[in-house]
Write a protein that binds this DNA or RNA. Structure first.
Lengths: 196, 196
DNA sequence: GTCTATAAAACGATAGAC
DNA sequence: GTCTATCGTTTTATAGAC
């Protein structure tokens, strides 16, 4: 039961990730020092390097984990093959719900792409592209079936995702609208926007 | 005609702003040093302080100028009082056109808000709010007249602006679609989204 | 108005004791 | 695994010569 010096590492790694996540989201990757992260965790700066080879890897791992969480959650939510209208409704609600639950990860994933070195950037972009393809496939299916009227499925995909992700810029739990009401309002706008 | 030492200051100020704009947009405010900006202009770092009291003011002035340009251009474009449908079409085309012409300013204005000190942040936020109010007023007028079906004009405002500003993340001049085609596609989505 | 030089502090990352 | 200490570099900003 008694812990000796340095024995609680299995708790330290997630605490470092949590501190980096919070500070990167709040101040930006470039503006946050390793010393600030260490102080937030209660360590000296040098100790961080037992958990990450460098600052860049810490950022890249946060972003990779977020994108993989997103794809895994989406794969589960979309396991059933639905008609285009129901599939689109499911995507809209999934996207809003998932993103609202993780405002810090979402903020970093969209704002710190330019802070990634080329290899990390390519990895994260590929994951993001896979996610966008999920929505694009729904819109193409619906357009082919004649239930959606989208002039350009790729642009409609990007437009819908931009609109939905924008919820994160203003929604606050406990505000005027519940999450369910927000999802309903956005679903209405998306449904009409794609001519369904 | 011959210039003596230090005589070309009237050209230096805009060159500093242009360099800061380019570098802040590309790498982020915190990641750009005064030395980098000076090198881009062809100066030593200390010379920049003849033009700005500090780095923060340089960012704040870039953002303020952008927001004031936006409001002035919008005021001119919207000088005529139109019916809600035509006013909305005008706003959509104005927003896309203005933002596409200034990708660096737009990127900074959205990404570097957190880098602003509190007083500067409040100033910029107030300007942004004035711009959003222009669209909200159009949506409220249209809803009151029964030509739009928006459940919540404030949320619809934020949703439309997020969607339109998202064009900047993917549009490149010379690509598959002309700017006019893009404006037309987005106008179609916005028009349907608001139930017009 | 720009230069060189520098002050004072902070940066990422490492070495070695424990 | 974390500490103290430090290396080598870079940072913002200023001082004073020209």
């Amino acid at each position: 039961m008694a812990r000796t010096q340095g024995s609680h590492s299995e708790l330290t790694a997630p605490r470092i990730r949590a501190a980096a996540l919070k500070l990167f989201a709040r101040h930006g990757y470039a503006a946050v020092s390793m010393r600030q992260i260490a102080k937030d965790v209660g360590l000296q700066a040098g100790a961080l390097y037992n958990y990450t080879p460098d600052k860049q890897s810490l950022l890249a791992e946060l972003m990779r984990a977020h994108m993989e969480d997103l794809l895994a959650a989406r794969a589960e939510a979309a396991s059933a093959q639905l008609a285009p209208l129901e599939a689109l409704a499911g995507f809209v609600r999934f996207h809003i719900g998932f993103h609202i639950e993780r405002p810090e990860e979402v903020f970093i994933a969209y704002m710190e792409l330019r802070a990634l070195e080329p290899d990390n950037f390519a990895d994260i972009e590929a994951l993001r592209r896979r996610y966008e393809d999920e929505l694009e496939a729904i819109l193409r299916r619906g357009a082919a079936a004649g239930v959606f009227a989208v002039e350009d499925p790729k642009i409609a995909t990007l437009a819908v995702i931009a609109m939905l992700t924008g919820v994160n810029t203003w929604y606050r739990a406990g505000g005027r609208l519940s999450l369910e009401e927000v999802e309903e309002i956005y679903w209405g706008m998306v449904r009409r926007a794609v001519g369904a």
